[in-house]
Design a protein around this nucleic acid. Structure first.
Length: 293
DNA sequence: AACCGTAGCAACCGCACTAAT
DNA sequence: CATTAGTGCGGTTGCTACGGT
């Protein structure tokens, strides 16, 4: 109870007692009041909503609650692999333009995507001891995580048991096809997803030059999972200068991981909550980064 | 069982933009 | 043109749940 009392503030405007505004978590009662009002009067004019609905909230608060939580089309629950891929792609293209990114993920809010980015992606950057905006990290995403994610999507599409919802798939493909740039990712006829590296952020001259060649040659995504290819990605994409530093021993371990099907590439029996951002990926990259420096 | 650290998420804040006056 | 109200957006905060010790 106290939690709902916490955070009351007084409004600077006219009737201070009457206009005492609530802050903090919304109660069920408030939710239903807001819902009832919006159902009758529609969205918009949030200050009027706040006044007329009887809610002691600011218009901003009402708007936020409605848009981020109460809209009927809000999709709740775990972010699917396709959505994760889309987020990574769109973020690499647009940066922190959360609302713009959210427009391409129906049912997801900018807040949700922002939270996803901060909690999952930034955490991984932290574990790798690099800045999320660093070239190093972007390259890791571009040449390791995104291809892995693509592969997992493909793998899951081939094994119906671990298939994310069809709805989500359709959504992803629809989104991709709706994005104007022809450089954007696309879903091919077989339903698998390819990532066009050109949509990703501009890299520094040296590495992008070498990488364009490397990546454009990857017409078949399975190539991404050829250990030699991956090694090349890491050396060129992550700017690792010692070509021989990451030994095949590493890749063998990587392959062994695949064979165990415990999460890197094979969808297995994981929950959809599982992401590409698992510890093995982090470990693998840390090793590559360490060896390469 | 109690405590602590952390991840995830809902909500707030401040600023910017836009349209109406 | 200047002002103001409404709205949108990105960054940040703080609460809750949960797992580890």
């Amino acid at each position: 109870m106290d939690v709902y009392k916490r955070g009351f503030i007084s409004e600077t405007s006219r009737n201070e007692e009457e206009m005492e505004l609530r802050k903090g978590p919304w109660t069920e009662e408030e939710d239903s009041m807001l819902k009832a009002h919006v159902n009758i009067h529609g969205e918009g004019r949030w200050n009027a909503v706040a006044r007329l609905s009887g809610l002691r909230r600011t218009g901003k608060s009402c708007r936020l609650r409605w848009l981020n939580y109460m809209r009927p089309e809000i999709k709740r629950g775990n972010i699917s692999l396709e959505e994760q891929l889309l987020i990574l792609e769109l973020h690499s293209r647009w940066g922190n333009r959360w609302s713009k990114i959210a427009q391409h993920l129906p049912g997801r809010t900018d807040n949700e995507i922002k939270n996803y980015w901060r909690t999952r992606v930034q955490r991984q950057a932290k574990q790798l001891n690099c800045d999320v905006n660093s070239k190093q990290f972007k390259d890791a995403m571009r040449y390791v995580w995104i291809p892995r994610l693509v592969e997992r999507i493909r793998a899951s599409s081939e094994s119906p048991s671990s298939q994310p919802s069809t709805t989500t798939k359709t959504t992803y493909n629809d989104c991709i096809s709706n994005i104007s740039s022809s450089q954007m990712s696309y879903a091919n006829a077989s339903g698998s997803v390819q990532v066009d590296p050109s949509l990703l952020p501009e890299l520094s001259g040296t590495s992008s030059d070498s990488l364009d060649t490397q990546v454009s040659s990857v017409s078949d995504l399975t190539d991404c999972y050829n250990p030699q290819s991956l090694s090349n990605y890491l050396h060129k994409g992550l700017g690792l200068e010692k070509e021989g530093a990451a030994t095949w021993g590493r890749d063998e371990e990587f392959q062994a991981t695949e064979e165990h099907g415990n999460g890197l590439l094979v969808g297995g029996g994981e929950s959809s909550m599982d992401t590409v951002w698992n510890e093995e990926n982090v470990w693998f990259l840390q090793q590559q980064l360490r060896d390469g420096i």
